[in-house]
Amino acid sequence: MKKGRIRHMAVFTLKSQYDSAETKKFLADGEKILSSIPVVEHFEVLKQISNKYDFEFGFSMEFANQEAYDTYNAHPDHQAFVEERWKKEVKKFQEIDFEVY
């Protein structure tokens, strides 16, 4: 990752069962909706493989700069996903934002 870029990650556990249709739909919808926001780059849906950490999934994405990240946060599709899906279906989460040191 180049200096000035931002990597945003949200790690989370859903209220639905790990392999359920609801979980698969949430992950697929999250990818479709959030990756379609023009400033989002390198979107990935991740699953946890370590027993050292108790979050089950992650969304990871990159932004060209702080302005792009702010645009994403204010984007109506992101805000709608948070209100209509995230707040209702996510049991617990942690957000992490990184830039190159």
Rank of each mutant, 00 (worst) to 15 (best):
S60H: 05
Y101K: 11
Y69H: 10
V90E: 04
E41D: 15
V100C: 10
D19R: 04
P38I: 03
P38D: 11
K87G: 09
I37W: 03
S60R: 13
K47L: 05
F26D: 00
S20K: 01
I96R: 00
Y101N: 14
K92C: 11
K87P: 03
M1S: 11
Q94T: 13
F93L: 04
F55A: 15
Q66C: 00
G4V: 11
V45A: 09
K15M: 07
F81C: 10
H75K: 09
E89Q: 07
Q48G: 13
V100P: 09
T13Q: 00
K92Q: 12
F63E: 06
K91G: 10
Y53Q: 14
H75Q: 09
W86H: 12
Q17D: 15
K3R: 11
E99K: 07
G30R: 02
V39C: 12
T13R: 02
D29F: 01
H8K: 12
D29H: 00
E56S: 10
Q66W: 00
V90L: 04
H42R: 08
A10I: 09
W86N: 09
W86G: 07
W86D: 07
K25H: 08
R7E: 15
K32Q: 11
F55M: 10
K2F: 06
K15L: 07
L34P: 07
E89M: 02
S35E: 05
I33E: 06
Y72N: 08
P76H: 02
E84I: 00
Y72G: 14
F43S: 14
D29S: 04
E41P: 01
E41W: 01
R85V: 14
K47H: 12
I33L: 03
Q17M: 09
L46C: 07
S60D: 08
Q17A: 15
A80G: 07
E83P: 02
V11F: 10
E83K: 11
K2P: 11
D54M: 05
S36G: 05
Y101G: 03
V40N: 04
G30A: 03
F63Y: 06
S60W: 07
K32V: 05
D29K: 02
I6E: 04
N73I: 04
F63I: 10
K15P: 09
V39K: 09
L34C: 10
W86R: 07
S16T: 15
D54H: 08
F55R: 14
T23C: 11
K2I: 11
R5I: 05
M9Q: 11
T13C: 06
F43I: 10
S16L: 00
K24D: 14
K15W: 01
F98N: 08
A74N: 04
L46V: 12
L14C: 07
E95W: 01
K52E: 06
F59H: 08
F26Q: 02
F93I: 02
I6T: 12
G4W: 02
K24M: 09
S50A: 12
K91Q: 12
F26R: 00
S16Y: 01
E67A: 05
M61T: 13
M61G: 13
E99G: 03
K3W: 04
V100E: 12
G4E: 05
L34T: 10
I96G: 02
A74D: 13
M9T: 12
D19C: 06
Y69I: 04
K47M: 09
